[in-house]
Amino acid sequence: MIVQQLINGITQGSIFALLAISFAVIYGVLRLVNFATGATYMMGAFAGWLTVRYISQNIFLAMLAGLCTGWSIGFLIEKVAIKSLRGVARIASLICTIGFSIFMIEIATVIFGAETKAMPSFFNEKAFTLGGATVVWYQLFLIGTAVTILLLLQILIFKTKAGLAIRTVSLDFKTAGLMGINVDRTISLAFSLGGATAGIAGVLGSVYYNIVNPTMGNLQGLKSFSAAVFGGLTSIPGAILGGYLLAIVENFGVQIVSGGYRDIIGFVILVGFLLFRPRGLLGKKTSL
């Protein structure tokens, strides 16, 4: 049972980690919480659902669709909420991301209807049992994919020139500009990357839970935000750690206390960290 809860937690944590990264990449470059992350997750899921339903029953194609959709949404949010509002109080951009979130949810409701759609399963056969716990292949696929994406992002951010640009902009955008780094483009790139990560997470999550609907990203987005704060909003490894830890703590919380306390656990962690350790587990002291 403990093994099963751990596996449940790691699977759920993979989705949280991807979304937490989406928050962290964007928060890193702009010190702005992108509240449209949950809605981007949902749009990614719909893109995957459309692909599976009308084009091909191929999960890789669905993930590609989720990635492209998320990328475009991230790009668009940056253009509207950030670039056009440059120089206005930060709060305007923040509210604008909330507006985007509402807008996307309503648009999805208008286009697809409020009815929950069924997302087919992939690789749903039992892989193995371990200590009484059942693991299906898809769980392994989801965890593996998430870890691969997280590693690729890690490489992108820490080993490439574009990543160096993101890191310098996130530390000091004025000085980054003096190094010849195109700050606008770097911010735009971070938004697109964050969007793409959320979009893929949407496809992975919707296949795991077998459902797609316009409100599916709401709670997911909020919890992942907690995970990101938990790990340290400006730290990419922190966001990953926060995502996995939050899910595992939640799952064990259900086991030890009760299912009704599940969300409370997540949000107590959020409030607790905001109050007592705002930089999170791995964030730097100077960062927040």
């Binding site: 809860q5 759920q12 839970y209 709401n218 709670l219 086991q255 009760s258 299912g259 009704g260």
Partner: peptide, 16 residues
């Protein structure tokens, strides 16, 4: 066991 509105992941509750 109970869950709150909007929950999407029931695996922990079911395991319990």
């Amino acid at each position: 066991e109970n869950y709150f509105d909007g929950e999407k992941d029931f695996t922990a509750i079911l395991t319990k």
